[in-house]
Design a binder for these strands. Structure first.
Lengths: 347, 347
DNA sequence: TTGAAAGCGCTAACAT
DNA sequence: ATGTTAGCGCTTTCAA
């Protein structure tokens, strides 16, 4: 029996047909011709009984559980995972799929996640989504080969799995263009120093934009350090203490921007009157609550989650479920304008 | 077949026994006496084959899906949901249960969630966890009566469902006691003005603690407004502009505390030298990144998530799955000491 | 246009 | 101590 004890048999009985017929009409089976009138009778009976199929029985029979596994690192540490989950959940629901979630400790070794993948596989998930905490390259667990899978916010070093990541460079271009459009020509970049895609791509976007506008890149204005609030503070102090200080700062993330705010404040510089700042990440808690609100670049976490389930749905529908060698898909990082950018101060 | 096509039959064949025996030993069925030697043979065969049971088949047969549904409001808006999910997920995993998540829009009407609950029920979840975005009283959807259910961060107005909520009052007591212990006697309270449990309970904890230490409550020092950064700023300015300004501020949440920091800064007051501040919520992004770090009270989201699954597990094991009329369980809100509290300045 | 029946992989009476 | 077997609720040939 399914919900509240009503099964397909009850519907059949009530409609005066066989379970076969009920199954056919409720699943819109294209192979079966059922008289419109019978069809209606079945539908009514099902509705009256509040019938819903037992998904476990369906799954057993069809070998499709309707479950999508989402393996996410460090679900609770950042709000990012929440947005991925939300995007995936809503897309899943639209396809009558259910999301099952499992948290993976971020260990020294990507392979450690193989056990987590296994748990999902044993649960008979139809596909697995593998989401990392921040954009990076991974060695996908080998057992991901046995099931349709897509990477979220990560690319597979071996290039076997479909993957979706943020367009870091495009986001940086948007940020810096915004600054240039406001009239800035001396723009500092407070970058991360990890060897991750975001570090390199955002720097590339920074350089590219300046070059495109004929602005020479002053390498003294590009500093890097681990991306924390206090390093953002320190780097900003360094930059802003220069006689030829930049009039704008592009920060690797909102946390570093938060540090930059404090540095400016201590130096008697008011944002955005004396200094323009743009961040990256759009962490609402920081960006919206800083004073003035921080103009920043949003990471497309929701969209990546949604894209991932759309992709596995496609994989599941056509093809054998295994997709062969894609380039990672880049999703837009839109600029979120708040109040931290203005024209540079008159000298 | 289950994982990679190996089924119980294969194990039976390989071990030279019947499927019954395999089932018995793999499930440690207490009713069945199996020779230790046979037992070992079965275990080995299963291991060699990499056998794992098909959970769908098991579910169909036992009428237990091993799925726990978590219905969470606004998964992505706060980091809180993430911690609930994590707590629930880890507890679930410890019991070999899987968490399926669905996001519920927060509508005008709690009853709107009935449809979401229905989705979960149709998925044959063994129980549902219903988590709200912030501590409040709800009208639980009526279909929650048809399945073991527990409320997280919410209490049922009708009192039918087990519920777990933070000990708001205890948290406030811890916060204010910390301030009093540091030597403060003029303590301001910047409160929320919503009619929610946290507002009332934290105020009660504030009053209770002062009373316990023989400190008269100056009602002029208790202000309320919607709990936002800018109202925190405004209320703090008001309080700190008084000639007999408080030497410490207890803030309804970290966001308001963030506003208080700015007010202090503008007034030339240094935290904690001139002003001590304690917040509530322990939103890492804010509390850990403010300068100095904000001493605050943590909400037990992880613990509530874990408690909820432990509770449904108990409900599922003994009893018919329906539990009758409990008082909500209160979970501890521990004080997180950072750097925003010191002794009051010498006059 | 509809129905009978086999069987998905597993558990649990009931036999032996 | 171990095996036989009847389903769990559903989909899907195949037959009528």
């Amino acid at each position: 029996m399914s919900v509240r004890g009503v099964g397909i048999k009850d519907v059949a009985e009530r409609a005066g047909v066989s379970v076969t017929t009920v199954s056919h009409v409720l699943n819109d089976n294209p192979h079966a011709r059922v008289a419109p009138e019978t069809r209606a009778r079945v539908r009514d009976a099902a509705a009256e009984l509040g019938y819903g199929p037992n998904r476990m029985a369906q799954a057993l029979r069809t070998n499709r559980s309707g479950l999508i596994g989402l393996l996410s690192e460090e679900i609770a540490t950042t709000p990012h995972a929440g947005r991925i989950i939300l995007g995936a959940q809503e897309a899943a629901r639209a396809h009558d799929l259910t999301l099952v979630i499992i948290n993976a400790e971020r260990g020294p070794d990507d392979l450690a996640h193989a056990a987590d993948v296994q748990v999902l596989i044993e649960r008979q998930v139809d596909a697995v989504l593998y989401a990392t905490m921040y954009h990076r390259q991974v060695h996908a667990p080998p057992n991901l080969d046995h099931v349709p899978a897509v990477l979220i916010d990560a690319t597979d070093r071996a290039g076997r799995l479909p993957a979706v990541v943020p367009d870091e460079r495009g986001g940086a271009v948007a940020a810096v263009t915004h600054l240039v459009d406001a009239g800035h020509t001396r723009i500092g970049f407070i970058n991360n120093d990890d060897d991750v895609p975001a570090t390199h791509e955002r720097l590339a976007g920074f350089r590219e934009t300046l070059a495109r506008h004929g602005i020479a890149v002053d390498d003294d204005l590009v500093l890097q350090a681990p991306s924390e609030v206090h390093t953002g503070y320190e780097l900003a102090r360094t930059l802003l203490s220069r006689p030829d200080r930049p009039t704008a700062l592009f920060c690797y993330n909102d946390r570093m921007a938060m540090g930059a705010y404090r540095a400016a404040n201590e130096l008697g510089l008011e944002v955005p009157r004396d200094l323009s700042v743009v961040g990256f990440d759009n962490q609402e808690l920081i960006a919206a609550n800083l004073h003035p609100g921080l103009t920043t670049v949003a990471l497309p976490h929701y969209e990546m989650g949604a894209w991932a389930v759309e992709t596995v749905v496609r994989l599941l529908e056509d093809g054998d479920g295994t997709d062969h060698r894609h380039d990672p898909v880049l999703l837009d990082c839109p600029l979120i304008v708040r109040g931290s950018v203005a024209a540079p101060p008159q000298p």
